[in-house]
Structures are given as C-alpha cells and as structure tokens.
Amino acid sequence: MSTRDERIELLQGTLDLLILRTLQPGPAHGHAIAKAIERTSADVLQVEQGSLYPALHRLLKRGWIVAEDGTSENNRRAKFYRLTPKGRKQLSIEAGKWDRMTTAIARILHGSTEEPT
C-alpha cells in the first residue's frame, strides 16, 4: 500500500475520532459538526468540509452513529446524527489509544529515561 493511502487512512481515523467526540454532548447536523470540529481543532485539520460526509457514512455503516430527522436552530428540516452506545464505547477506546500515543510522542520529544528504539 502506498504512503498516500496510509496518510489518508491516518487522517480518516482522526476525523472519525473527532466526529465521535463532537457528538458526545448530543446530536448535531452536518454543518454544526463541521463548525464544531473547526472550532475545537483550531484549523489543525485542513480538510475540506465535504470530506465530513463520507466519514459520517463510514460511522453510520459501522453502527457507531445513527441519523434521524430533526429541526435545525433556524427551523429547517435537517438530518441529525446521534452517538449509539456502541459508538460511545468506541470513542472511549479510541480516545484512550490517542491519549497513550500523544503521551508517548510527548515523552520522545521532551526526552525520557528510556532509549528510543
């Protein structure tokens, strides 16, 4: 598999995690999710907003989120995405992994007692 494919896979994983994270407090529609991600990650992820939708469908397919019809803040019909119990569990697993990894990276960057291999 090429390095390009690998990078996309990494980005996808991150995006999935961010979406799950955004939906943790409660259901949201597509545009709101995009806005929330942009706000929290402070433009760290330079992805086009459109790429949110394939990610949403990936999560739908895995059964981590569900889509339901609702009304948006300006009284328009919109599709809302909600975390399922399975998605909640996945979020905690992924978040744990992520934390461990960032800790490890931080340790490498700031020097540690062990020799890096």
Partner: peptide, 11 residues
C-alpha cells in the same frame, strides 16, 4: 444535506 450545508455556511 449538502445544499443545506452550503446554505448554512453562506449565512
């Protein structure tokens, strides 16, 4: 959904 998204972003 995409139409609405772009609409919301425009607003």
């Amino acid at each position: 959904e995409i139409r609405d998204h772009i609409e919301a972003e425009t607003e």
